[in-house]
Simulated assay, not measured.
Amino acid sequence: MSFIHSAQQYLIIILAMAFAGSAPVFAAQTVNEKNCTAIQNAINKLPPAGGEVQLSTGTYTCTHPIVIDKNNVILRGRGTATLLRLADGINAPVIVMGTTENIPSRATHYVSVVDVMIDGNRANQSSECMGGPCSDQFPLRNNGISIRRCIDCSVQSVVVFGAMSGGLVTELGCRRLRIRDYTSYDNEFDGMAGYETEDSSFSGIYLYGNKAAGISTDIKFNNNKFFDVTIANNKTVGIFMRDSLDNSFTNLHISDSVQHGIFLAQVNHDPSTAATGNTFTGVVISRSGGAGMIANDASCVNNMMVAAQFIDNRQGCISEAASGLVENVGAICR
């Protein structure tokens, strides 16, 4: 067995122990200089087998994104006492987990971001995408965290606010992500969004006061699990879903959405891109400006709502484009 292969197995153990609060130090770099160039330099200096970059308390100013595109890397702060803040006029994401290519040519494995707060400094940015108008030429949206073709990667105990695009976005072939204890607010678009992401888990999620949805999923967002999710006061819908198959939400609370609580749809006129087979269990949806839940297109079949309370939603509880799209078991509408 090669050293690198052994190190990869060891880093898996480290990540598991990190979530238990007892990770050993392996190829550690400590960053005290308060800028993100120093963080990037520390990441670049890690050996091929990876390691951990540790941040002290204080505010780190970012004049470019922190890119973690090598395997087996942990970036660890000290909770909300460690703030990564995008500098004025930079128009960039704060952290990229994975490569920055338009379409990543390779996957990145076993990257973890733990115990940091991220300020996208939205009020002092001017563009949603880095480098120019969002396009194939300028694919990087200015999210708090962009996770791009990352496999077995994780985010834990992270707060993101004020991003010029979304708070945390997964895309372009992510698998087996683990997002735990994630809070996001006051972003220009969604608190969290997922695209081309499968077999991942999201737990302890709190999303509020974002200018678009709390959660938005699209483009083959399949077989993912959400636990213990609170979504409040978002300016469009609580959850927006298209092209999303066989996902589950357990212990979900949505309140005070300006539009609907949950919105299921297809992409344009293509019924093969509908939100189908999704299950919502233990749900409270209250005080939506629209309906508690809408299945907007007849293609949105085989969705299930189990043990739900719909409370004071202005346009009613469940609205369907055709009858029977949402199997409703034990829901109360009041």
Rank of each mutant, 00 (worst) to 15 (best):
99 T>E: 05
110 Y>I: 08
246 D>S: 15
287 R>V: 03
141 R>V: 11
287 R>Q: 13
102 N>W: 09
277 G>Q: 07
164 M>I: 08
323 S>P: 00
92 A>F: 06
187 N>D: 12
291 A>M: 08
307 A>S: 14
135 S>D: 13
326 V>C: 08
331 A>E: 00
90 I>D: 03
295 A>E: 00
281 T>A: 14
137 Q>F: 13
290 G>K: 06
331 A>N: 01
186 D>P: 00
326 V>P: 01
141 R>C: 08
10 Y>L: 08
36 C>N: 04
109 H>V: 06
110 Y>C: 05
279 T>H: 13
166 G>K: 14
152 D>N: 12
50 G>N: 07
108 T>V: 15
214 G>N: 09
185 Y>W: 11
29 Q>G: 02
33 E>N: 10
5 H>W: 08
18 A>W: 02
112 S>V: 15
162 G>P: 06
125 Q>R: 03
173 G>N: 01
82 T>Y: 03
79 G>Y: 08
141 R>P: 02
64 H>I: 01
301 V>G: 02
71 N>V: 07
125 Q>F: 03
48 P>R: 12
239 I>A: 13
280 F>H: 10
249 F>W: 06
187 N>G: 11
297 D>E: 10
282 G>A: 12
306 V>T: 14
164 M>V: 06
174 C>R: 03
172 L>D: 05
31 V>G: 03
37 T>F: 00
281 T>R: 14
164 M>T: 07
28 A>C: 05
196 E>K: 13
249 F>H: 01
182 Y>L: 07
132 G>D: 09
63 T>P: 00
5 H>G: 08
330 G>S: 10
238 G>L: 11
152 D>W: 01
309 Q>M: 11
18 A>H: 07
63 T>E: 06
180 R>D: 09
10 Y>R: 10
119 D>I: 11
31 V>D: 02
284 V>D: 11
154 S>C: 06
19 F>N: 15
140 L>H: 05
37 T>Y: 01
49 A>G: 04
249 F>P: 00
289 G>C: 11
213 A>W: 09
206 Y>A: 09
200 S>D: 04
218 D>P: 01
154 S>L: 05
158 V>P: 04
252 L>Q: 06
70 K>I: 06
311 I>S: 06
179 I>Q: 03
311 I>L: 13
33 E>W: 01
166 G>A: 15
279 T>F: 10
217 T>V: 08
213 A>K: 13
55 L>R: 08
175 R>N: 09
306 V>M: 13
8 Q>D: 13
190 D>A: 15
2 S>A: 06
129 C>R: 11
280 F>Q: 07
288 S>H: 02
256 D>T: 11
196 E>W: 09
233 N>Y: 12
173 G>M: 04
211 K>N: 14
28 A>P: 02
150 C>W: 02
56 S>I: 13
249 F>K: 00
215 I>L: 15
114 V>S: 12
130 M>A: 09
205 I>C: 08
68 I>H: 07
191 G>N: 03
287 R>P: 00
73 V>W: 00
91 N>D: 12
140 L>Q: 10
91 N>W: 02
270 D>M: 04
314 R>H: 04
280 F>C: 10
60 Y>S: 00
162 G>Y: 09
192 M>L: 15
239 I>V: 15
69 D>G: 11
133 P>I: 10
11 L>Y: 07
114 V>M: 15
92 A>W: 03
175 R>D: 06
42 A>I: 05
299 S>N: 12
85 R>Y: 03
81 A>Y: 09
14 I>Y: 01
